[in-house]
């Protein structure tokens, strides 16, 4: 009985320390050696949240150097064909510009269940959110363990989020990874251009849980806050 209690206390302490480290890690720059990149490329994942969020996210991605930021993973909600098509269209345009040399696919689409549909009743949201969370965990936490170089590489080097709902679940999974000490990507949240004076709900929820928090209007920058403002990015 007493050994069981001791184990529980140790586990509890372990999680407290991890929690502290995970939260703390957002406030300082992670050491470069913690996540060595094999070459001069950097893998990225982008969450395409549907409609306007998708357009903004893809506009952001289009600004990146596709030779450097490769491979690219587009995370799409199940059934969101609009976003999937838009992502493919962007890749086609970029491929035409660049004429990529190697035969390996430079991008992939990842479908995850929606956390909450528009106008969905609040009562039925939790089961869907759990389903979404489990799917995210599979991609973010479990699958990297069974690939080459496990425990060293996160599922991607950088995750770019632009809202809405489901991206909070995705970020929660990253946070869980940090809690238990699994490798995790850097997380960058870019608030929508539509947000001028106040953050969106996703923005408010993720404010303290992202490595970079970017806004597109100067009015959102608080003195001493962690927001970064570089003008309109989309």
């Amino acid at each position: 009985m007493s050994s069981c209690t001791t184990t529980l206390v140790f586990l509890f302490l372990f999680f407290c320390i991890r929690l502290f480290l995970a939260v703390f890690s957002y406030t300082r720059i992670r050491l470069a050696s913690a996540n060595p990149r094999p070459s001069q490329t950097c893998s990225i994942a982008i969450f395409l949240g549907s409609g306007g969020h998708t357009s903004e996210a893809l506009k952001l991605v289009s600004a990146l150097d596709f030779d450097r930021y490769s491979p690219r993973t587009y995370i799409v909600s199940e059934g969101d064909t609009f976003s999937a098509q838009k992502a493919l269209a962007l890749e086609h345009i970029k491929a035409a510009d660049h004429a990529f040399s190697d035969d390996q696919p430079q991008y992939k689409l990842l479908f995850i269940p929606r956390a909450r549909r528009v106008h969905q009743s609040l009562l039925s949201t939790p089961p869907d959110a759990v389903r979404s969370l489990l799917a995210c965990m599979r991609f973010v936490s479990v699958r990297p363990l069974f690939t080459k170089g496990a425990f060293r590489q996160p599922f991607v080097d950088l995750l770019i989020l632009n809202g809405p709902g489901t991206c909070v679940i995705l970020c929660a999974t990253i946070f869980l990874n940090r809690l238990i000490g699994l490798p995790s990507p850097r997380v960058m949240y870019v608030e929508s251009f539509a947000r001028v004076k106040s953050l969106s709900l996703s923005g408010k929820l993720l404010y303290h849980f992202t490595d970079r928090f970017v806004v597109q209007w100067p009015g959102l920058v608080q003195p001493g806050g962690r927001e970064i403002y570089r003008g309109c990015l989309v």
């Binding site: 470069a32 950097c42 600004a63 150097d65 950088l158 003008g231 990015l233």
Partner: peptide, 19 residues
Amino acid sequence: FPPFDGTKFSKLVDEEMGF
């Protein structure tokens, strides 16, 4: 309205990833 300027975001990401 100013035209789309992708360098702002790409610079931000390059900074973040240590390039």
